[in-house]
Amino acid sequence: MQRVGDSLPVKWTLIVLALVLTALVLVVPLIEIVRQALAGGVGELLDNLTNTYTLSAIWLTLLIAVITVPLNVLFGTVLAWLVTRFRFLGRRLLQTLIDIPFAVSPVIAGLVYLLLYGRNGWLGQWLAGYDIQLMFAWPGMVLVTLFVTSPFVARELIPLMQAQGRQEEEAAVSLGARGAQLFYRITLPNIRSGLIYGAILTNARAMGEFGAVSVVSGMINGVTISLPLQVEQLYQDYNTVGSFVSALLLAMLAVLTLVIKGLLEWLAERRQQRHSKVAEDV
């Protein structure tokens, strides 16, 4: 009997096609980034890597990610929980609203924040009374990144939690589990993979965001320039090597994120195995 996956020519055509596409779309551009970063030799690469502006861009990029990811993991989990476990008026509307940051162009998002929190915006004027300036400073960049990356976790969790239903949780409650216990022992283990994936997406976007942050950054060298902005600025400035060194740094941060993701998944899997082993022993 013929089964799917039996046909050798189809199998090999697909494999070759996948390899060629991966090479063209993924590998060649990555190699080109490395090649361009090394175009001036290792010395120039190191100079570009260790100058104060690059170091501050790395620092700012990490700061944005380190604030954005936990806040949006928290926000996304609460939202997904609310939407999938409770029935209330406006639930559908809320589910649509979650997607707004996906639907809106990041530049528009940045602009709206600028018009609200800028010198002439009513929120900006109110904050200026307390001598607080969010725009053209790092808090503004964090704010727009929070907005742009807010749907990732919720969008990962909602389908997952909908598919799982609430039987397990109801069973736990009937056995006497309290709120926090319920969350950490039942809900969290079930959504762990979606949570990790959502956090990875949030992190990647937070570190790579260009459009929204470029509007509110003010481009102050060594102060409000994150790595993606630095790539653009050095390129505009005819410093191609510097630009590609920053691009390489961004790529390496992305790889690091993926490594962390792999590590977390491996740890989670191991814990799961240990738990089921304990369960069997009992």
């Binding site: 018009l115 010198r119 002439n120 053209f136 481009m219 060298n221």
Partner: peptide, 18 residues
């Protein structure tokens, strides 16, 4: 502190509070 961008962009940023 140096900031560099197209000078029309800079003008708009300053009006908005840069």
């Amino acid at each position: 502190k140096q900031t560099h961008a197209g000078s029309s962009t800079q003008a708009r940023s300053i009006i908005q509070g840069l």
